[in-house]
Design a protein around this nucleic acid. Structure first.
Lengths: 147, 147
DNA sequence: TATTGTTATACTCTATAACTATA
DNA sequence: TATAGTTATAGAGTATAACAATA
């Protein structure tokens, strides 16, 4: 780790600020479809197949009661369905509906628009480097696609 | 902007997730000094000199009532002082105390530790590229040092 | 009249603890 | 006993609106 003289050299601090900025921009775009940023993480995880609420809580790194809340909202939106597990009736498996898949596509589109606005000042090389570095850090800390 | 097939290629979405992770790690370290992440932004801004609460709100991109709240807490911590502006008695100029400067140093140290843990998997080249790209994006959106 | 700061209030996001039902 | 889900409640963080003091 090289010497850090100023806050601008610190990646963690910068990630927090840029993360907040990206979240706000993302929220504005999603509002047009009636969604909020944290719901998108659920849709993303379920795209690879159904998950129990507890497994989803672990994947998203939130506490189980938060998943209940998000699942309630997404069910009301028609994006997911709760399906009792036949072999373990305690489990509520969450699965995407066709509407959920459509919403996931629109969310990815919104996120892509945010990228375009956020990263307009970078050249192709900088952009590739940024993507590669972020993907590496995400993978190192178990935040990417794990299934 | 290149084609985005998956969420892992999207920078905005990744920034939100990594920003949350960095914020949590940062909060854990700061708790040892009795501080919270959002207070560090105030100390950072004031390091270049005093600011009125409204100017600070603009710099931090939060609503003025939030600054009142943060200033209350930091005053109680002994990190800042409110000084009535002599020429415009409506203004409360916030300035760092020696204790505030010390806390800022410890916060930067904590942030540097988070960096070391977060970025351990990157080689020197990737790290330089990441820093440069983040600095560029921050500057493009008015988030870096502006004074 | 406009600006600076403040208070009251509400909303979102997250967490903990106690509970129900299943295993 | 242990696990999956749920509910009630609380604590941050942020925002809006109404207000007081000052310009």
């Amino acid at each position: 780790m090289t010497e850090q003289r100023s806050w601008d050299d610190n990646v963690a601090f910068t990630l927090v600020r840029l993360g907040h900025l990206a979240d706000r921009r993302f929220a504005e775009k999603l509002a047009a479809v009636g969604m909020r940023p944290r719901q998108v993480g659920v849709l993303e995880q379920l795209q690879a197949g159904p998950l129990s609420q507890l497994d989803l809580a672990r994947a998203l790194r939130v506490t189980p009661s938060v998943v209940v809340d998000m699942a309630d909202d997404l069910t009301e939106l028609g994006a997911i369905q709760r399906v009792r597990d036949t072999h373990d009736r305690r489990r509520q498996n969450l699965r995407l509906t066709p509407r959920g898949r459509a919403l996931a596509r629109r969310a990815l589109q919104a996120a892509t628009e945010v990228d375009a606005e956020l990263l307009a000042g970078l050249d192709a090389g900088q952009l590739d480097g940024l993507r590669a570095a972020l993907r590496q850090v995400s993978a190192d800390h178990g935040l990417g696609r794990t299934r």
